[in-house]
């Protein structure tokens, strides 16, 4: 392995790990003020919104790819299917879409 690549990989590993580990270790078991707590409990659902959109529109050059896949996942999930079924349905519908269009 070249020295430059070694430095790049180690450096990337460190700066990736720090934000992931810092809150978990430094605030382990600490009680937060109620208002901060309430906001943190909202974070997972808000984060999902930000992780889905607008990224989903740009997974392929054809914007309809993301839209059709997203709507498929939404409908199947609303019907109450579990995670894997939702993921596989979205992939299957898009495979059909790309075969026929």
């Amino acid at each position: 392995m070249s020295q430059t690549m070694l430095i790049i990989i180690l450096g990337m590993a460190i700066v990736t790990y720090i934000p992931r580990v810092l809150p978990l270790v430094s605030m382990n078991g600490k009680e937060m003020p109620p208002k901060v707590k309430a906001v943190l409990q909202n974070v997972p659902y808000a984060a999902l919104g930000a992780l889905i959109f607008p990224g989903i529109l740009f997974i392929q050059d054809d914007i309809w790819f993301g839209i059709i896949g997203g709507i498929t996942a939404l409908v199947i999930a609303l019907l109450g299917a579990n995670l894997i079924i939702v993921v596989i349905s979205a992939i299957s519908v898009l495979t059909m879409y790309s075969l026929f269009f």
């Binding site: 919104g49 997974i59 997203g70 996942a73 199947i76 999930a77 939702v86 993921v87 898009l94």
Partner: peptide
């Protein structure tokens, strides 16, 4: 190509059960 939807479908599948239960989560997302 079609598998590029997988992680987004996963995120949607994680969000939906909570969406159905609480209006607040619809607004958050």
């Amino acid at each position: 190509q079609s598998m590029s939807i997988a992680l987004y479908a996963l995120f949607i599948a994680l969000l939906v059960p909570s969406l159905k239960k609480h209006r607040k989560i619809v607004w958050l997302a």
